[in-house]
Amino acid sequence: MTMFHFFNCAILTFGPHAVYYSATPLSEYDTLGTSVKTAVVYLVTALVKLVCLATFLKVSESDSFDPSQELLKALIGFVDVAGLYFALTQLTHRNISQNHKFQAVGLGWAFADSVLHRLAPLWVGARGLEFTWDYILQGLEANANLMLSISLAALGSLMWLRKNKPKTLIPIIYACAVIVATMPSITSYLRWGLGWHLPEVVGFQLFTSLAMALISWQLFSACQRPSA
């Protein structure tokens, strides 16, 4: 019965990645290599982030929200953006179109994040007898994270790869990218600074990631038009 619950949570956490890969043209163009490479980049990025956090952050005894520390954390969070930049610009795997590249990168990024952050707690926790909503919420969070990662990759590819984009859209693209990149800090602020409960935070994450995904989609298709 508890194995069953673990199975359910695993489906919720990792299923969307697989569905995304198989449902979109990604699978037809065999972009798995790009995703795997991105995952490796994510691992390295996470390592760098850990080292930075360990070096610059003070260990706080309490769970309280310290603005300066959080600001530092948010700055270190931009290491992610650097990692994504590297993955988008430096990785060349065959000749896949920009259109598919950012999706493959975003997917690999989100999947690596899920495996790294959610697999172990899921295995340890969801198999226990005790039932909590936490692991279901965590699965939903993984979904939101997938959307955010792909949005960020889309915006990144707009910023760094596309040369001829409408001038009017450039500030919007940058603003959106900043918002998406700071989303982890924002949720952390809601959780620890304002004391929101986990369901509320996850709801917020789902809502904002959906909104950001829609916006980046619109931006992307808007940039697509003139070139097409």
């Binding site: 019965m1 069953f4 226990g128 007898l129 039932f131």
Partner: peptide, 10 residues
């Protein structure tokens, strides 16, 4: 004491 979910819920 564990709070458990039922099979039907799963």
């Amino acid at each position: 004491i564990y709070q458990v979910a039922s099979v039907t819920f799963d």
